[in-house]
């Protein structure tokens, strides 16, 4: 498929990192949920984040498109710093795509309408062009025939693939995945992971919170382990799985890889 150029923006020459988190701290009330998080994601890198529940991994990536707010530190996405400034937030959200654990498709719109809504109203794309793009991405995720169906008529795996296509229609520079397969029945996990692997191979910058370690081994440039709000360990996948450095990492790996 000659879609490489169509789906991924090339990095600008001599570019800054795509995503930078510098000394990011976040509190829920008095509860310190992100502790001095530092992270750099270069263009085209795939980062997999794992950790026990409550470790702050979902919170961290939700801060990147300002679904959550950080109180201290800097988050810079493609050169734009995320502050309270609403215009910056709008700019960032246009360039960052997000796939949710529970899909969050719009149940009252058809699949095609789900995909064309944002391009028409946010990027001001003409309807015909938006629909062409939408069908293109539906073919990419291998369900073009579902275009006029409603989300309620699709299986979980199909819905999540539609959700991925919906984000891709906005031509983002970065894709964030928040446990994309956790809510799926086991037999549908593979079809979604396949799409994500393809996306990765085309050079999309990706940050993925997941428990699917097979996916991490296949695709990730870096695997990050978070616990209690801080990044405990960060390494290339082979090193990460074979020689975990911290005890907490070892404990976690034994728990999820053991059964």
């Amino acid at each position: 498929m000659s879609s490489t150029a169509a789906s991924v923006r090339p990095a600008a020459a001599g570019a800054h990192a795509m995503i930078e988190l510098q000394h990011v701290n976040k509190w829920y009330g008095q509860f310190h949920v992100l502790r001095d998080v530092n992270l750099t994601v270069e263009t085209g890198q795939k980062i997999v984040i794992c950790g026990p529940s409550g470790s702050g991994k979902s919170t961290m990536i939700r801060c990147i498109n300002r679904l959550e707010e950080h109180q201290q530190g800097k988050i810079i996405v493609d050169g734009v710093e995320l502050t309270a400034d609403l215009r910056n937030i709008d700019t960032v959200r246009r360039e960052v795509g997000m796939v949710f654990q529970h899909f969050n498709l719009f149940p009252h719109l058809t699949v095609l309408e789900n995909l064309t809504l944002a391009p028409i109203w946010v990027r001001k794309t003409p309807r015909k062009e938006a629909e062409d793009t939408a069908m293109h991405f539906l073919r990419r995720v291998r369900i073009p025939e579902q275009a006029s169906k409603y989300p309620g008529q699709l299986s979980g795996g199909q819905q999540q693939r539609v959700a991925i296509a919906r984000s891709l229609c906005m031509r983002p520079k970065v894709m964030l995945f928040d446990e994309p397969t956790s809510a799926l029945d086991p037999e549908m996990v593979k079809e979604v992971l396949d799409v994500m692997v393809e996306l990765a191979k085309e050079g999309m910058t990706m940050m993925c919170v997941t428990h699917e370690m097979g996916f991490a081994r296949a695709v990730a440039d870096k695997v990050i382990f978070m616990d209690k709000g801080e990044i405990v360990e960060s390494n290339a996948p082979t090193e990460f799985f074979a020689h975990p450095k911290s005890d907490r990492t070892k404990l976690f790996l034994s728990q999820i890889l053991g059964h």
Binding site: R93, F106, W121, S167
Partner: peptide
């Protein structure tokens, strides 16, 4: 809440999200 979040994540404004996503449902 996921509907509000998805609308926000796609970059829709408050009024766009309310008119296209929230109110119809």
């Amino acid at each position: 809440k996921g509907q509000y979040e998805a609308a926000n994540a796609l970059g829709l404004t408050y009024w766009q999200g309310t008119w296209f996503i929230i109110l119809p449902q």
